[in-house]
C-alpha cells in the first residue's frame, strides 16, 4: 500500500460518498453542493493519476461553471430551498438498474484488473498535453469549437422569451 494507493482510496471514497448524497439528498441546493465536493474529489484523483491539466480544467469548467449554472437554474426555477418530499420517483426500477449497472461494471473491472500493480505515471505537464492535443487531435479540437459556438447560440435562442410556447393562460393541459 503506497501513498498513492491510500490517496486513491480516500479520494475515491469521498467522490463516491458525496455522489451518493447527490442522488439521494432531499434538498436541491444541498445536492448541488455535494456535487461540488464530488467533482473536487475527482480533480484530486486526476492529480494523483498524473493528469494535471485535466484536473485543473475539471476544477475550472465543471466546478466553476457547470455547477454554478446548475445552481442558477435551481434559483430561476424557484426550486424549494428546504427539504422537499416529492423530489423522487419510485425507487425500485432505479435501484435495480442502477445497482445492476454499477455492480456489474465493478465486477467486470475487478475481474479484468485484479490486484495488478502498475507503475506510477510520470507527472503530466501542459507541454506534453498540448503536444498530444495539437499533434493528433487537431480536427476534433476545431469541431469542438464549432460545437461550443452552436451550443452558445442555441442556448441564447432557446432562452428568448418571445419564441416557443404561448402564454400559460391560453394553454390547456
Amino acid at each position: 500500500m503506497t501513498v498513492a494507493d491510500a490517496l486513491l482510496l480516500a479520494l475515491g471514497a469521498i467522490a463516491v460518498g458525496s455522489g451518493a448524497l447527490v442522488v439521494t439528498s432531499t434538498q436541491i441546493v444541498r445536492a448541488g453542493l455535494y456535487l461540488v465536493v464530488s467533482l473536487g474529489a475527482m480533480a484530486g484523483l486526476y492529480l494523483v493519476l498524473g493528469a494535471e491539466l485535466v484536473a485543473w480544467v475539471q476544477v475550472l469548467v465543471y466546478v466553476g461553471a457547470v455547477v454554478v449554472l446548475l445552481l442558477f437554474a435551481v434559483m430561476l426555477t424557484r426550486a424549494p430551498i428546504g427539504p422537499s418530499p416529492d423530489l423522487d420517483r419510485p425507487a425500485w426500477p432505479a435501484l435495480i438498474v442502477g445497482g445492476g449497472v454499477g455492480v456489474g461494471l465493478a465486477a467486470l473491472l475487478v475481474d479484468a484488473f485484479r490486484w495488478t500493480i502498475y507503475a506510477m505515471p510520470v507527472p503530466g505537464t501542459t507541454d506534453r498535453m498540448g503536444a498530444e492535443l495539437f499533434g493528433s487531435w487537431v480536427l476534433p479540437f476545431e469541431v469542438l469549437s464549432i460545437l461550443l459556438l452552436s451550443a452558445l447560440v442555441g442556448a441564447i435562442v432557446l432562452s428568448r422569451p418571445d419564441i416557443g410556447a404561448p402564454k400559460k393562460t391560453e394553454v390547456e393541459v
Binding site: L9, V16, R89, A94, A106, Y118
Partner: peptide, 30 residues
C-alpha cells in the same frame, strides 16, 4: 499503484449516476 481502485470508483459513480437519472423527478437533479 493498484489501478483497480480508481476503476471501481468509476464504476460505482456510474451506477450512482444511473440511479439518479431514473430516480429523480426534478429535471435539474437529473
Amino acid at each position: 499503484m493498484h489501478a483497480v481502485i480508481p476503476y471501481v470508483t468509476a464504476a460505482l459513480l456510474f451506477g450512482l449516476g444511473v440511479y439518479g437519472v431514473l430516480r429523480r423527478r426534478n429535471a435539474i437533479l437529473v
